[in-house]
Nucleic acid binder design. Structure first.
Lengths: 212, 212
DNA sequence: ATCGGCATGTAAACGGTTACATGATTTA
DNA sequence: TAAATCATGTAACCGTTTACATGCCGAT
């Protein structure tokens, strides 16, 4: 399990309420880790009990009060020790691959629309990522090209919203805002590479299905 | 949930016992869907109660008896209706991405070994897939190249073991052994593309980490 | 004689999903 | 006035993971 750790990272990047975290899990962090608000409130409460995070009541005008969480020393230490223990290279769950293999026993051509839907969803996410990359990581001087040609978008692109927030406690070693940005960028590049690969593969799948 | 459906597909490809299924979920099917034996036994029992699969006691010499399951008409129908309903484009969980972003707050260089471990695991899987592709889908006449240059392997490669098994009931429409092979191949190509992408991205990550 | 593979299970704990619930405020 | 957003929760259910358990057979 790593929801706690994903929350810690997000709160280190920028403190926020449970509600705000829930929305981040629809955006930036949410691209590689999902969680519903119910889950987040429950885990957040446990983390507070364990002293990993501390809450601060914040009054707002025109809005309900919120409890803004930030990472406490114990939480920072917990993250650190998680970072230092090895994790298993992930275990994937690809429903679509099961469907594709299953289609051999039931009208392959019937799957075309479904695969096209998925292809569209991945093209949308790619456009979304590229927009975020262009916004948050504009191409610098020489030597660094952000990414290559893209897909035609379709959904409204929205920002990954990753302002350089301030960690609550002093980090053990080399934690510069510089590293934070660079590492966020390399993760985003991973998302971009993933979507590109998926689109190319789904085209391959469509070509294969069209042969039946 | 799609474990039931993954089991149906696997049993359509070839009938087998719970134990055999559990091992298949370490290989072929397991590359895009994991399940432990306990899970499989429980689901299998439920599927039997629902009339989706039928068991047959098979005596073996030198081994305990096994209950060999095959797909019943109701199971085939259940798979068919699942294939026809749309599913959500998957929700990913990338622990490693969380770690990478978290590393900004705790020694980025300390993550190098972990990322290298993951890179190795993906290189191994790629070698494994490519070996399986070479074995089960040998390059045909013209026009079809299986894949491009690869990685240096390291772990012992093992077969995806996908013999063309016989479905128990007559399929609704175009289910040829031909389609079965082709669709298995396109799924395998997806695995290969995924591993290649991951290796390239992890190299990018390593290069980024080395800057700190 | 012990270890690894075959074969099948039970039980408990945990994590994630879905549904339901409340109440204020701003925007269309 | 109705809908969307902010903000926080409870309850029930279901799927997954981990630990424990049993027993036979063949090979070292």
């Amino acid at each position: 399990m790593a929801l706690e750790h994903a929350i810690l990272v997000s709160l280190l990047e920028k403190p926020g309420s449970g509600y705000e975290l829930a929305r981040r899990f629809d955006r930036s962090i949410g691209y590689f880790w999902t969680a519903t608000h119910q889950q987040i409130y429950r885990v957040l409460k446990r983390m507070e009990n364990d002293g990993w995070v501390a809450a601060r009541e914040v009054a707002q005008q025109g809005r309900p009060d919120k409890r803004e969480y930030s990472v406490a020393d114990l939480g920072h230490a917990a993250l650190s020790s998680w970072l230092h223990e090895p994790i298993e290279p992930e275990t994937v769950r690809h429903d679509l691959a099961v469907k594709i293999r299953g289609a051999a026993f039931d009208d392959p051509a019937g799957l075309v629309r479904e695969v096209e839907r998925h292809r569209q969803a991945h093209a949308d996410r790619l456009a979304h990522y590229l927009a975020g990359e262009g916004r948050d990581f504009p191409p610098q001087s020489p030597a660094e090209a952000p990414s290559s040609p893209a897909e035609a978008p379709s959904s409204p692109a929205e920002a990954p919203s990753s302002p350089v927030g301030e960690g609550s406690s002093p980090p053990p070693s080399g934690a510069s805002p510089d590293a934070e940005r660079e590492l966020q960028h390399v993760v985003l590049r991973g998302g971009i590479a993933y979507e590109r690969m998926m689109i190319a593969w789904l085209d391959d799948v469509l070509a294969t299905l069209h042969r039946f």
